[in-house]
Amino acid sequence: MFTMNKAWERFFYLILYFSQGSSYLTPRAYGILHRMHHAYSDTERDPHSPHHNKNAFLMMWKTRKIYNDIVDNNLNSDPGFKKNLPEWKLIDKIGEMGISRIAWGIIYVGFYSIFATQWWMFLLLPVHFLMSPVHGAIVNWFGHKVGYCNFKNGDQSKNTLPVDLLMLGELFQNNHHKYANRANFGVKKFEFDPVFPFIKIFSFFRIIKLEKTLN
C-alpha cells in the first residue's frame, strides 16, 4: 500500500510496541501470517478462517500456533511471503519475552487501580491483556461470516459493517480481499474507512509514500 524511510519505520515500530504492549505481534511474523491468509483465504491452509474452526477461540489458538512457528522460523512458508517485511530484532525479542508481557500486564492493572472509578471497569482488563488476539478474532471471524459482499472473490469474505468505526475499517474484509493493496478499505460511497484520511495526511507530509494503486 505504501512505503516509508527507515527512520519513520523505526518510529512506528516503537509506537507499535508501546501501543500493543502485552499482546505485541512481531511485524515480520504478522506480515507472513497475513499474506498466507490472503493466498489461502478460507481454505484449510488459511491460518485464521472461521469456516475450518468450530469457534473463534479455536481459530485464534490455531493462529497462535502458526504465528509462533513463524517467529521461531519453524514454518516452511512460500519464500514470496517473506519479502520486503520490516524487522527490528531487538524490539521483537523484547516484545516476545514473557517477562515483557507480564510487565505490561502489571502496568495495566496499576493504571486501572489509579483511574478506574467503578469495579466493573476492571472487567475490561482481559481485553487490554489480549488486545491483538481479540482484534484478530473479531475481524477474521465476523469478517468472513457476517455481512454483505461487493465482490465475488472465491472465498467467504464479507463486509460486516457499512461504516466501520469499531475496527477502524478492518471489517471491510470483502473489499480488502478484492483489492489487497488498496489503502482505502471503503469502496462504495456509503462505506467509510476512518483510517484512510490519516493515511492521506501522512502521505501529504511525506511520512509515507503511497503506491500507485486504486485509492
Rank of each mutant, 00 (worst) to 15 (best):
P162W: 11
G154H: 01
N150E: 12
G154T: 02
F172T: 01
L166P: 05
P162T: 04
C149Q: 15
W141D: 03
E170N: 13
S157Q: 08
E170K: 08
G143I: 07
V146I: 11
K158V: 07
Q173I: 00
L165Y: 12
V146D: 01
S157K: 06
K158L: 11
D155F: 03
V139I: 14
N140F: 03
K158M: 15
L171R: 08
P162M: 11
A137Y: 00
H144P: 02
Y148M: 10
K158Q: 14
N153P: 12
L171T: 13
L166N: 02
L171C: 12
Q173Y: 02
L166T: 08
G154A: 01
E170G: 07
V163F: 11
F151E: 11
L161I: 06
K152L: 11
E170Q: 13
Y148V: 15
Y148F: 15
A137D: 01
K152P: 04
Q156F: 13
T160M: 14
F172V: 01
T160A: 13
K145W: 03
V139H: 06
N140A: 08
M167T: 15
V139W: 03
C149Y: 05
F151M: 11
L166V: 13
D164Q: 05
G169C: 05
M167D: 03
K145L: 11
G147C: 10
N140G: 04
F172W: 00
G169E: 06
F172Y: 06
L171F: 08
D155G: 04
K158T: 07
H144N: 07
L166Q: 05
Y148T: 15
G136K: 01
Q173G: 04
Q173P: 09
G136D: 02
K145D: 03
G136T: 00
Q156M: 13
V146R: 09
L168S: 13
L166S: 06
H144F: 02
G143L: 07
Q173T: 04
N153F: 10
N140S: 09
F142R: 00
G154I: 00
L171K: 08
L161C: 06
V163M: 08
C149M: 14
Q173E: 10
W141K: 01
F172N: 01
I138A: 08
D164V: 07
C149K: 15
N150I: 02
G154C: 04
H144I: 05
N140W: 02
D155K: 00
T160Y: 10
K158G: 07
F172G: 00
P162R: 12
V146W: 15
N140D: 06
N153D: 14
L168F: 15
K145N: 12
M167N: 08
D164I: 07
L171Q: 13
T160P: 09
F142M: 07
L168E: 11
M167S: 10
L168Y: 12
V139K: 08
V139T: 13
N150H: 12
G147F: 09
N140C: 06
D155Q: 02
V163C: 07
Y148A: 08
G154Q: 03
P162S: 10
K145S: 13
W141M: 01
V139N: 12
Q156I: 03
G143M: 06
L161D: 00
A137F: 01
G136I: 01
F142Y: 07
L168K: 11
K152W: 02
Q156Y: 14
N153G: 14
L166K: 00
F142S: 05
S157V: 03
C149L: 10
